[in-house]
Amino acid sequence: MNEVLLHAFNGLSLGSILLLISMGLAFSFGLMNVINMAHGEFIMAGAYTTYVVGQHLAPLVGGTDAGLWFLLALPASFLVAGVLGLLLELTIVRFLYGRPLDTLLATWGVGLVLQQAARSLFGASNVQVSSPSWLSGGVVLSGGVQLPYKRVFLIALVIACIVAVYTYLHRSAGGRRLRAVMQNRQMASCLGVRTRRVDAATFALGAGLAGVAGCALTQLGSIGPSLGTNYIVDAFMVVILGGLGRLPGTVVAALVIGVANTLLELSTTASLGKALVFALVIAFLQWRPTGLLALRTR
């Protein structure tokens, strides 16, 4: 029983991580059709922001163990990555809308530049972010099975992000404008929406969400210049499987891939499990090229 619970938890947890890393991409790639290869580097920027906050701000707000700094690092990561995204949009991406191959190459180049910039700023070695004491350890079930608090926290964070994004999109003026522009740009423009500004804000929002993911991932994995490259492929896979332009699709796809990957890895090996997931995704897209929950388009 506990075993089953543990595996279900692992699947849910992997799904939450996948959702966290792909939610930002669902905006820049899913909604705006920008093949944003620098998405991984926004995740990295969030992770390094968390590192800097942990190094310099933590002593001022109760020390590393108290963990108040970590709660501050979340919005800080959102802001830093969001501002980076905004700069990228204003200086490069906006000239390349509607030219996917060019955005692909340009953002990939920007990604490399950001990686090397991190290398120059923080050194090539991985850095270490300590965990707040309330994130160490886990819920102990009988039979020696333990559910780490960090993963519980990640699941909660993802739910919070979904709620925040949903509220923004459906309950705020900005979100309404965003949806209007993405659904019918000309009409929105005619009605006085400044589409350029909405584009920039949407791209920045996607980058900011990647920053939040980076902050959360410091608790699980390594923090180094090439951190983003570990996640970028998975992020694209989730968004494409979910269906472009559909945020609920991204949520479902992340959970499906998370659970499938855990189950397949359990019955085979890590490498084979991952390969099987890729194969299944490809097969599914052959059958339904528009993804799990695609918009009906003419």
Partner: peptide, 17 residues
Amino acid sequence: EEYLPLGGTEVSTIISK
């Protein structure tokens, strides 16, 4: 005996195993 893809960071299933 288990192998993780190079650079992989999803280790929860391996830890369960």
